[in-house]
Design a protein around this nucleic acid. Structure first.
Length: 419
DNA sequence: TCTGGGGTCCTAGGACCC
DNA sequence: TCTGGGGTCCTAGGACCC
């Protein structure tokens, strides 16, 4: 069997861990820039995805506790949840910040699975303060479905141990709630008269392939209990890395944009180095605010080649700045920019090849420099930055985070006090 | 005034190779 | 009357996930 362990309203639950006074109050968490509602506790689910400024009166009226996104906190609590889950099976796939698959190769019995699921949920709640739901079934797709149904019924655990149990459960699951089915497929399936997960599972896999492609074929087979998707314990290195932000205010001057883009490029470098990769190209882009229909609109992007490929912050910052100056047009008010690393490859091989193009000793110095910078920043929290990150109005681009909670578990100043 | 950010996979078609 | 067969790489677009 596979289990899917999924945290309930994860970000909202994180905000409650050190705030017992919020246990009985609805909680929502906003996206970057305090833009949209991206997480909501059970009672507040109805405003998920809405722009905050539209639902602010509603939040006040219902005494909803509202938070900016606190990724330091969520990342650390996620790590604790995953470490706890890992004690239940060595076969663990961390699928996202708030969910993980576990494999139990010998588990088949319904009763045994149920008590295991309950044990997992109870232990995670007890050790981390985060409530979770566990779905158990023969395939990952069925485990996802079981989890979905557990959440719907406010259960900690739901097991689909037999084909009959799966059949009955899938009959109650709308097809768009199946993992891999979103609105486009929902519509096309609807035209075929398929509206429930059970009906989808009864589609002939060959027809599924013919009509929708191989992904849908696998999905149908998985719903029938045939394992097509295995556990991916060690995620492969990323092929693309992207850092982009909406700004806290509109920016018109090139220098302020340079500060933002330099910061994004530097962050791209950190991500590359963390996975031992180098990039052979960058894509730099920027855009005005498309929601403001009366403003003049402009959006553009440009690729920049990195030769030799690199993970060096300074070279990435310089290349990104070069790209930005190529696409920047004065006279617009910009809302958003980003830097993407492309053509990513392993650093080791590239280092060997690069010796033809650049002096090996230079590369060694670059590596040592960035290692030192990373260590200092890890310990002292962003103490060393590139000078261009402070250009123009420096941090003018920074996002709005008016309702940020303390970084309870990752910052000494924010440690909770117990009386 | 105020509307997020970061990924993956698959397919089809074109260019090119022997 | 009647076109060879088999392959790779790249890109753009479409779909999905959290």
């Amino acid at each position: 069997m596979f289990a899917l362990a999924d945290c309930n309203s994860f970000y909202a639950s994180c905000e409650r861990v050190f705030r017992p006074d919020l246990r009985e109050r609805p909680v929502v968490v906003l996206s970057n820039n305090d833009g949209c509602v991206v997480a909501a506790s059970r009672e507040a689910k109805s405003i998920m995805g809405r722009p905050y400024f539209q639902v602010e009166p509603f939040c006040r009226q219902h005494r909803i506790a509202v938070f900016s996104s606190n990724y330091s906190l969520y990342g650390d609590l996620s790590r604790r949840v995953m470490e706890t889950l890992a004690r239940f099976s060595p076969r663990l796939e961390v699928y996202s910040i708030d969910e993980a698959f576990l494999e139990f190769p010998t588990l088949r019995e319904e009763a045994e699975a149920t008590s295991l699921g309950q044990d997992i949920a109870h232990t995670v709640q007890r050790w981390t303060g985060i409530p979770i739901s566990v779905g158990l079934a023969a395939t990952k797709t069925l485990a996802k479905a079981a989890n979905r149904l557990a959440k719907r019924q406010a259960l900690s655990t739901l097991v689909l141990a037999t084909p009959a149990a799966a059949r009955d459960a899938l009959a109650t699951l709308p097809v768009e709630d199946v993992w891999g089915i979103s609105s486009r497929y929902q519509k096309r399936l609807g035209n075929l008269g398929i509206t429930t997960a059970l009906e989808l599972s009864r589609l002939d896999p060959r027809d599924a392939k013919q009509l929708f492609g191989i992904v849908m074929e696998r999905l149908v087979r998985e719903l029938r209990g045939e394992t097509c998707l295995g556990l991916e314990e060690t995620p492969p290195p990323r092929k693309q890395l992207n850092v982009s932000r909406s700004f806290g205010q509109l920016l018109g001057d090139l220098a302020s944009l340079e500060a933002a883009v330099a910061t994004f490029a530097s962050r791209v470098g950190e991500k590359l180095r963390r996975q031992d990769s180098v990039a052979a190209g960058l894509y730099v882009y920027l855009a005005t605010n498309s929601f403001r229909q009366d403003d003049a609109q402009y959006a553009n992007g440009v690729g920049v080649t990195l030769l030799p490929p690199t993970d060096h912050g300074g070279r990435l910052v310089a290349a990104a700045g070069e790209g930005l100056r190529r696409i920047y047009q004065p006279g617009y008010r910009y809302k958003r920019a980003g830097v993407m690393a492309l053509d990513i490859g392993p650093a080791r091989e590239t280092l060997a090849q690069g010796s033809l193009l650049s002096c090996r000793a230079d590369r060694q110095r670059e590596v040592r420099l960035m290692r030192a910078v990373d260590q200092i920043n890890h310990r002292y929290g962003g103490a060393v930055v590139f000078a261009s990150q402070t250009a123009g109005h420096g941090e003018a681009w920074k996002m709005r985070q008016d309702r940020l909670s303390p970084r309870y578990t990752t910052n000494w100043q924010d440690l909770p006090l117990v009386y």
